[in-house]
């Protein structure tokens, strides 16, 4: 038995048609039906398409200046028109620099994928958002998955001011 992606819609926001085509081919080989994979080439187009279809996974490039991919991510997480602020978003970029990973994390990214990438690396990130989705933090300063990724035991005081657990959906 394997994952069944027939009911899963994926939005790929890329900088060039060639990169989109490659993503589409790779996802199709990973058993995502081609007709379920949509393209966008800007943050604006990406959000518009996401609002229309409410995709199950968004894969976005860092895009152009000034950090349009980050903008898209923040818009998905916080805009009142966003159909699903909790959608898994995989950010892809041609740099693994620490500051870039941290900025993605602080904007609410689910997973970060450095390009060039191997098929297995993409599959690992998709598997993580399927099997280990993190709880979401919603606050004035940040909306996105909990930023503590590792499940480490902590026996100190809980210093969060107020905490509410809500079963969403």
């Amino acid at each position: 038995m394997a994952y069944n992606f027939t009911k899963v819609d994926v939005l790929v926001v890329e900088s060039t048609p060639e990169m989109f085509k490659l993503f589409k081919t790779v996802l199709a080989m990973l058993d995502v039906p081609s007709q379920n994979i949509d393209s966008a080439y800007s943050a604006e187009e990406g959000f518009e398409k996401f609002c229309k279809k409410n995709h199950d996974i968004v894969i976005t490039d860092w895009l152009d200046n000034p950090d349009k991919g980050i903008e898209l991510l923040k818009t998905i997480r916080t805009h009142k028109k966003s159909p699903n602020a909790f959608v898994p978003v995989i950010m892809t970029a041609g740099s693994s620099h620490f500051s870039r990973v941290i900025r993605s994390r602080d904007a609410g990214v689910s997973e970060y994928l450095v390009k060039p990438f191997a098929a297995e690396s993409l599959a690992i990130r998709i598997t993580r958002v399927i099997e280990n989705p993190r709880d979401f933090v919603v606050s004035d300063a940040y909306t996105g998955p909990e930023r503590r990724i590792r499940d480490v035991e902590y026996d100190g005081d809980d210093r969060r001011v107020e905490k509410q657990w809500i079963q969403a959906g």
């Binding site: 909790f86 979401f136 919603v138 969060r160 107020e162 657990w165 809500i166 079963q167």
Partner: peptide
Amino acid sequence: NMIIKPKNTL
């Protein structure tokens, strides 16, 4: 701060 456990529809 609200901690939300989204439904895992995926």
